[in-house]
């Protein structure tokens, strides 16, 4: 899942793909690199200037419309917490709603159901969208995450969302300090054991930055290490800024796991 930020101010790319042309170039590039999913978002996660529904749609809708036309077969997800925005974007061809703030808008599952769209059920500890975690305490963070995301997934099914379109996402760093996020990653197997496909959104995030004391530009290796571990433990979808590198890591993990064969089988075999 390739991150496509239709934002001027997201933490890593800082507006590099802002504007319809730049976003479409990015989409063409990540699809060429092998991304199966493109995730388009119009509001950065961190607090800052207000982005209302009109502005969010102004940023995202033309990107989704054009991407749908250019790439009929790619899965398009839209990163939004607003049911009304998701409604418009699904009508324009989005396949999945990536509700990364964890169900703060109670109508979002009904929107997914109405359009036959998928839904990402995430955990942000019931924090309001675009707020930072502050002294958050969990008796058992993984139990909290599982209760939350499975609860959202079951509610989504009850609301009529197609069960094969639901994935769960522990939402690294959202509503969590770095130790919480590391524990969630360490116990990926517990999330996988719920039976729902697991999405990991770890790319260049602060938990990697705090392990290494490095800024976003220098967090690729740390992200890939976390991705390899999560893949080994059974996570299925990886939301990333770095498609080619992530796919190489996942290919090697799959080969070690015995799930994928060699691309070349000559060494010692000629």
């Amino acid at each position: 899942m390739a991150i496509v930020n239709a934002t001027p101010d997201s933490f890593y790319d800082r507006g590099r793909t802002y504007g319809v042309g730049a976003a479409l170039d990015r989409i063409d590039q990540v699809i060429a690199e092998g991304a199966a999913i493109v995730d388009v978002g119009g509001v950065k996660a961190a607090p800052g200037g207000d982005v209302d529904e009109t502005e969010e749609l102004r940023r995202v809708l033309p990107v989704v419309e054009a991407a749908r036309e250019r790439h009929p077969d790619v899965v398009i997800t839209v990163d939004t917490w607003r049911a009304s925005v998701a409604d418009t974007l699904c009508a324009a061809g989005a396949d999945v709603i990536n509700d990364s703030w964890g169900g703060t808008d109670p109508d979002i599952a009904a929107v997914a159901a109405r359009h036959g769209a998928g839904l990402v059920c995430a955990h942000a500890g019931w924090q309001s969208p675009r707020t930072r975690p502050h002294r958050v305490w969990y008796d058992d963070v993984v139990a909290h995450v599982i209760d939350h995301v499975v609860g959202l997934a079951e509610r989504a099914v009850a609301a009529g969302v197609r069960p094969d379109g639901i994935v769960i996402d522990p939402a690294h760093d959202f509503g969590k300090n770095s130790r919480h996020t590391l524990e969630v990653t360490r116990r990926t197997g517990d999330l996988v054991a719920t039976g729902w496909p697991v999405l990991m959104a770890m790319s260049r995030k602060d938990f990697v930055g705090e392990v290494l004391d490095l800024p976003p530009d220098d967090r690729l290796e740390g992200t890939l290490a976390a991705s390899a571990i999560a893949a080994w433990l059974g996570a299925r979808v990886f939301r990333t800024h770095d498609v080619a590198a992530t796919l190489r890591v996942l290919a090697v993990v799959s080969a070690i796991a015995g799930d994928a064969d060699l691309k070349l089988g000559r060494r010692g075999l000629a």
């Binding site: 305490w137 969990y138 130790r179």
Partner: peptide, 9 residues
């Protein structure tokens, strides 16, 4: 006594 286990410590 104190514990900071809920912060992941």
């Amino acid at each position: 006594t104190w514990s900071f286990a809920g912060f992941g410590v």
